[in-house]
């Protein structure tokens, strides 16, 4: 059965209604706020042009946040992809309990970032943490929490994010890798392909569109990283782990600077949009190929 244009519109209408009311409209109101002095409590609103954008990009704190999120995305996303893909590759052959294991892989992602932030705060803790416990058990001296160390805090936050997302990547890639016909693996083996050759010529081509989508998803999520950082470090030590989303939250909800909060929020949206455009472009290139 082929859907007509009218059928498609009819099916899309409920989603469009929800998105328009609860996403598009508030987002557009937020966008308007970025060009004004709007605040829910303001008695008058004035047009301010691009002043809010200038204030945000000139703020050294936002610059630090942008730098941090760039490092975060450039390190976390490839790590999540590599670890997620590697584990999925190892689990591709059927074995007893694979279905149950696949469900377990979802657990870190299912735990809310706030909850995992609280958990890792204690796990990293020098006095109470699992790291300290294991070191003590091995007779090694205490190791202070990396979250309190200027040089290690961002890496620790990245590690928590990788712990949360890499199993999710495995969960998403596993069905595609498992569905590659056995003949193709055998063919590659008979033609003398090494392990890396099999990955390059058999595995990756089979999951490339999905890999691209996952990369886009992870990039978008990384650019908007907020809740785990809020709990783990609050953006510190110093400005070591502050992110644009945390900056936006603090400005809008901490000190009621709504225009600046909305402006930084829209700058994150623009970055995600940029990543989305690259994704669309790459997808089209693939289709053309």
């Amino acid at each position: 059965m082929r859907l007509t244009r009218r059928d498609r519109l009819f099916l899309f209408a409920p989603l469009a209604f929800l998105l328009a009311g609860w996403l598009v409209l508030p987002a557009l109101l937020g966008l308007l706020a970025t060009f004004s002095t709007y605040s829910p409590f303001a008695t008058s609103v004035q047009f301010s042009g691009l002043a809010n954008y200038a204030a945000v990009v000139r703020d050294p704190l936002f610059v630090a946040a942008a730098r941090n999120v760039a490092v975060f995305t450039l390190v976390a996303v490839p790590l999540e992809l590599v670890i997620g893909f590697s584990v999925a590759y190892m689990l591709r052959r059927p074995f007893q309990g694979r279905a149950a294991l696949r469900v377990l892989l979802l657990l870190p992602w299912l735990v809310s970032p706030i909850a995992s932030g609280v958990m890792w705060h204690f796990l990293f803790g020098g006095a109470t943490g699992i790291v300290d416990f294991v070191l003590g058990w091995l007779g090694r001296p205490d190791m202070p929490s990396p979250l309190g160390d200027l040089r290690l805090a961002l890496l620790a936050v990245i590690a928590v994010e990788v712990w949360r997302m890499a199993p999710f990547v495995t969960f998403l890639l596993l069905p595609s890798l498992a569905s590659i016909p056995t003949e193709r693996w055998e063919e590659a083996t008979l033609s003398g392909a090494s392990w890396t050759g099999r990955v390059r010529h058999v595995a990756i081509p089979a999951v490339r569109p999905l890999l691209l989508t996952i990369t886009m998803l992870l990039t978008g999520l990384s650019l908007g990283t907020f809740d785990a950082v809020l709990i783990l470090t609050g953006g510190g030590p110093g400005t070591a782990t502050v992110t644009p989303a945390l900056y936006s939250y603090n400005r809008a909800f901490g000190v009621n600077d709504w225009p600046v909060g909305a402006t930084s929020g829209w700058l994150i949206a623009a970055a995600v949009l940029g990543a989305g455009l690259i994704y669309v472009r790459l997808s089209r290139t693939k289709v053309a190929d």
Partner: peptide, 22 residues
């Protein structure tokens, strides 16, 4: 008015940066 900015944003950020050696 805007005590939150004076303390939670300006003071808190500067103190955190100072302690971290930034």
């Amino acid at each position: 008015p805007q005590t939150a900015f004076y303390q939670q944003t300006a003071l808190d950020t500067a103190l955190a940066q100072f302690l971290a050696g930034e």
